[in-house]
């Protein structure tokens, strides 16, 4: 790992200021992606700004229609939260199946969303549930937030503070995980919302997480979801799975998610 300067501000305002003053800053949340990346020298920020001192970014609240999760809340905390288990059990289950126990004890929801790994789990839940991403500057809809593989609408000095999830009528996440990494080869999050069904697919798309309105229309019409409308040339192909296999899995995972949501 290359050298860097370390900052631990006690508020997001101070964190934003530290970002502005640095040449090539990176925000450190749980560090479960950033630190391994820096160890491999794939990232070499001049300044690392830790959000660990910003205690008001940690916590979960629920008012019956919305679950609000602070950006620095760990996956383990989301998985074991009675509020999340009651309001959106599919979200608690998703959090409890990310990576491994030690990653879940450090990794955070804000870090996962800001990184927008194309095979991460949280982006699928956030997009399918139509969540709102609250930042230091504004509120963004999930549809506007995810802009491409490892890309989001966040500006350089903009920090996620919380995520607001509207409580759906029903939801389920079906994940076909890579047996080695536990990342999603294909993951489909289905949410039955007051605006109709929403489907978000992770692990498969070259541009990261995406919705399929065709599959949503099939579900709304009471049909069995299938992935025939998905364009294979938009999907990832690697040593783990071909694009054709991922396309097939999207249909299978969508069916499983719809069945599990009941």
């Amino acid at each position: 790992m290359y050298e860097f300067s370390y900052h631990k501000p006690s508020s997001v305002a101070d964190a934003a200021q530290a970002i502005g003053a640095a040449d090539d800053p990176k925000i450190l949340a749980g560090g479960q992606t950033l630190l391994p990346t820096m160890k491999q020298r794939l990232a070499s920020p001049s300044d690392v700004i830790s959000l660990r001192g910003c205690r008001d970014l940690v916590g979960i609240s629920s008012d019956g229609s919305t679950v609000t999760i602070g950006a620095m809340t760990t996956h383990a905390a989301v998985a074991s939260s009675a509020d999340v288990q009651k309001a959106i059990p599919a979200l608690a289950a998703l959090a409890g199946n990310i990576g491994d126990a030690q990653v879940r004890n450090r990794g955070t929801i804000g870090g996962s969303l800001a990184n927008n790994d194309p095979a991460a789990d949280y982006p699928a839940a956030t997009l399918a549930l139509g969540a709102t991403i609250v930042t230091t500057k504004r509120e963004l809809s999930a549809d506007a937030f995810f802009t491409g593989m490892f890309e989001t609408a966040l500006e350089e000095d903009e920090i996620i503070t919380a995520i607001r999830f509207p409580v759906p009528h029903a939801a389920a996440y079906a994940k076909f995980d890579n047996p080695a990494s536990r990342y999603a080869l294909v993951g489909v999050f289905y949410a039955k919302t007051s605006d109709g069904p929403r489907i978000a697919i992770t692990g498969a798309g070259q541009g990261g997480v995406f919705r399929s309105t065709e599959i949503e229309d099939q579900i709304a019409a009471g049909k069995t979801p299938d992935s025939s409308s998905i364009n294979e040339s938009d999907l990832n192909a690697d040593i783990h799975a071909s694009a054709a296999y991922r396309k097939h899995l999207i249909g299978v995972m969508a069916k499983r998610a719809v069945a599990a949501a009941g």
Binding site: Y6, K8, L28, G31, Q32, L35, P36, K39, Q40, V48, S50, R52, A76, D100, A101, Q102, V103, N105, R106
Partner: peptide
């Protein structure tokens, strides 16, 4: 492994198990 996969470095920090190769000492 030093790549946060193998778990040989697991310790408890404030009561929870973490991979100490994926955490800065300053943290």
């Amino acid at each position: 492994c030093d790549t946060s996969q193998c778990g040989a470095c697991v310790v408890h920090v404030d009561g929870a198990s973490v991979k100490s190769c994926a955490m800065l000492a300053v943290e």
